[in-house]
């Protein structure tokens, strides 16, 4: 009895299912279904809404948790960077303090080598001293030796002899020292050491406009020194006999004997400066 009822139900359901399937081929029925789906769609959306809300809430929770983790990581990173910054600042302060001590300036040429005066004997007090840089540091004979004073590169002398780790510097005040010079008023002459504190600016053309107090620089045409190295201030102007021009007594901006730390400008950099 039960079996026959089940079989009858089965056939009824199969016929109904077949009708549903066939309804796909009939346009009005398809339209009715579309309408039914449109009506039932909001119902399914309502059913899904609380679950979607829970899902969205969960996602927000996850996002918040991720943000919290990211925040913690960033906080640690910030602390690390702050510590690092503090260390770097301390190093920078120390570096700036050293710069101040050594009178380093930003415009020091890239190829300049800082050096310390290691030997300065009384026998050669006006003639030469020894610095602690040599061939191993790329120093060559005739490299210019300067002292950085504020924004100025003041001429001290030139490298006369090089060794592996030291060099002899011929000083500006030596009687053997010669360099091409020029004044701010474009008057040319020869800078020469005098074996004493003051130096000379010789072979100044007669009738040229040179006065006491005017500043003298290297002219840069001698092939050894770059132009514009400050030398000193004109103190006394003498006119030589027999139309030999004028001789000017010059007080150096710095006496080479007072220099403890200097810079050696390599000849290679000099050539580069001139070619620029």
């Amino acid at each position: 009895m039960k079996n026959s009822r089940e079989k009858n139900t089965f056939w009824v359901l199969i016929v109904l299912s077949g009708l549903f399937l066939l309804s796909n081929t009939v346009r009005p029925v398809s339209n009715i279904r579309r309408v039914a789906v449109n009506i039932l769609f909001p119902v399914s959306e309502i059913i899904k809404y609380p679950f979607d809300s829970i899902r969205v809430f969960g996602e927000r929770g996850r996002t918040l948790s991720d943000l919290y983790k990211a925040h913690s990581l960033l906080k640690k990173e910030k602390e690390r960077l702050t510590r690092e910054f503090r260390d770097v600042k301390a190093v920078l302060d120390e570096y700036n303090a050293f710069r101040k001590i050594f009178d380093f300036e930003d415009f020091i040429p890239a190829e300049a080598v800082a050096a310390r005066v290691s030997v300065h004997t009384p026998e050669n007090y006006f003639d030469e001293f020894v610095i602690n840089r040599g061939r191993a540091d790329g120093i060559k004979k005739n490299d210019a030796v300067v002292k950085i004073m504020g924004r100025r590169r003041v001429l001290i002398g030139r490298v006369n002899e090089t060794f592996e780790n030291s060099s002899k510097v011929l000083l500006l005040t030596s009687t053997e020292f010669r360099a091409g010079g020029i004044t701010g008023g474009n008057v040319r002459g020869v800078i020469a050491g005098n074996g004493g504190w003051d130096i000379q600016f010789d072979y100044v053309p007669p009738g040229s406009d040179i006065r006491t107090g005017c500043e003298i620089y290297t002219c840069g045409t001698g092939g050894i020194f770059p132009g514009g190295l400050a030398v000193g201030t004109a103190m006394e102007i003498k006119t030589r006999e027999f139309s030999m021009g004028k001789t000017v007594s010059v007080r150096p901006f710095i006496y080479p004997q007072n220099a403890r730390y200097v810079h050696v400008i390599k000849i290679g950099s000099l050539v580069k400066e001139h070619s620029q």
């Binding site: 109904l16 549903f20 399937l21 066939l22 796909n24 398809s30």
Partner: peptide, 25 residues
Amino acid sequence: GQSFGFFSGLLEDLLTAGLLGERVI
């Protein structure tokens, strides 16, 4: 079994796109 299959298929067919009656039968 068949009743559950019929009505669950009908509900799904009505509320989702596709061939009406496919899941039902």
